Amino acid sequence: CFKERTRHLLREWYLQDPYPNPSKKRELAQATGLTPTQVGNWFKNRRQRDR
């Protein structure tokens, strides 16, 4: 489970761009302490949920 702060950051970025490029994923991974793969999976799952 991700911390509330991490989820908030991910949601904020998702609203700006639901399809982040690899450099954005790396930047967000550094900001949250997650791996770029975890960030990518979160975005993928969130896009699925929004369908």
Rank of each mutant, 00 (worst) to 15 (best):
P22F: 10
Y19D: 12
P18E: 03
Y19L: 07
R11T: 14
K25Y: 09
R46K: 11
R11I: 14
H8E: 15
P22T: 12
T37Q: 14
K3C: 13
Q30R: 08
L28C: 03
R46P: 06
F43M: 01
K24L: 09
K3P: 12
Q16T: 10
L15I: 13
Q48P: 03
E27S: 04
T35N: 06
E12L: 07
N45I: 08
V39D: 00
R46W: 07
S23Q: 13
P22Y: 07
Y19C: 07
P22W: 09
K3G: 08
E27R: 07
K44I: 08
R49N: 09
G33W: 02
Q30W: 14
R7S: 12
N45K: 11
Y14D: 01
Q38V: 02
R49G: 08
N21V: 10
R7I: 14
E4Q: 09
E27N: 04
T32D: 04
S23F: 10
D17K: 01
L10H: 02
T6A: 13
R47H: 03
Q38K: 05
W42S: 01
C1R: 05
G33Q: 06
W13Q: 13
Q30P: 01
K44H: 02
P36I: 12
G33S: 06
P20W: 00
Q16M: 10
Y19R: 11
L15P: 01
W13L: 10
K3L: 11
W42D: 03
N45E: 10
N21G: 10
A31L: 14
R51G: 07
E4C: 06
L34V: 02
R51H: 10
L10I: 01
N41V: 10
E27W: 10
T32Q: 00
L15K: 13
A29F: 00
G33Y: 04
Y19N: 11
R47N: 05
C1Y: 09
L15E: 12
N41A: 06
N41Q: 12
P18H: 07
N41L: 09
C1G: 13
V39S: 01
L34R: 04
L9Q: 09
T6S: 11
Y14G: 06
L15A: 14
N41M: 08
A31T: 13
Q30C: 09
R11Q: 15
R49F: 10
Q30A: 10
L9T: 11
N41Y: 00
R46M: 09
Q38Y: 03
R47D: 02
Y14V: 02
T37W: 06
V39L: 03
R46V: 07
L34M: 13
E12M: 10
A29D: 06
D50P: 02
D50Y: 02
Y14P: 00
A29E: 02
L28D: 03
L28P: 00
P22A: 12
R11L: 13
R26N: 14
V39C: 00
F43E: 02
H8Q: 15
A29P: 01
F43G: 06
R26M: 11
T37E: 14
H8I: 15
R51E: 12
H8W: 12
N21S: 12
D17I: 00
Q16I: 06
Q30I: 14
R7E: 15
V39T: 00
L34P: 03
T35P: 02
N21R: 07
D17G: 01
F2S: 15
P20T: 01
T6C: 03
T37K: 15
Q30K: 13
N21C: 12
P36N: 06
T37R: 14
F43P: 01
R49Q: 15
E12T: 09
F43T: 01
E4Y: 13
D17Q: 04
H8D: 14
T6F: 04
E4G: 07
K3H: 00
D17N: 09
N41C: 11
R46I: 02
E12Y: 07
N45W: 06
L10K: 00
T37V: 12
G33D: 05
H8K: 15
L34N: 02
R49D: 12
Y19P: 05
R47Q: 06
T6R: 09
K24N: 09
N21K: 08
L15F: 05
L34C: 03
E12R: 06
L34K: 04
Q48G: 10
P36L: 12
P18W: 07
D50T: 11
D17A: 00
G33P: 02
P36H: 06
